[in-house]
């Protein structure tokens, strides 16, 4: 049954990958990458249960943290064309 859940997650992954390939804008691809990250986290958790090794949850946590940092970094890059920009400070 864990295998069924893993299959559903793999199907989700495949569909998101299609969107990432189709685009058309860079933001569509970033959104697809973000979804793939979330699904990968879930897949790691399910895989841990599937193989009876819950240590995989630690990997899921690390993956989640990296996913957030990665998404924000990529977005900053596409927004300002530069990672060093401090971003806007409203009213400051």
């Amino acid at each position: 049954m864990f295998a069924a859940a893993a299959l559903a997650l793999l199907a989700t992954l495949a569909l998101a990958l299609v969107r990432a390939v189709l685009g058309p804008t860079v933001f569509d691809r970033a959104q697809a990458a973000n979804t793939i990250g979330t699904v990968a986290m879930l897949l790691l958790a399910v895989y841990g249960f599937l193989t009876g090794r819950p240590d995989f949850l630690d990997l899921a946590i690390v993956y989640g943290i990296l996913n957030v940092v990665g998404t924000i970094a990529v977005l900053k890059f596409f927004r300002y064309g530069d990672l060093g920009e401090p971003g806007e400070e409203e009213g400051a």
């Binding site: 933001f27 959104q31 986290m41 949850l57 946590i61 989640g64 996913n67 977005l75």
Partner: peptide, 26 residues
């Protein structure tokens, strides 16, 4: 740990989504 993963998704995903929307709008 599962709860931790859940909290991570629930706090981080709206932030990432918002950053994405704002970047696209800008």
């Amino acid at each position: 740990k599962l709860v931790l993963v859940g909290l991570l998704i629930f706090f981080a995903s709206p932030t990432a989504t918002h950053a994405l929307a704002k970047a696209a709008m800008t």
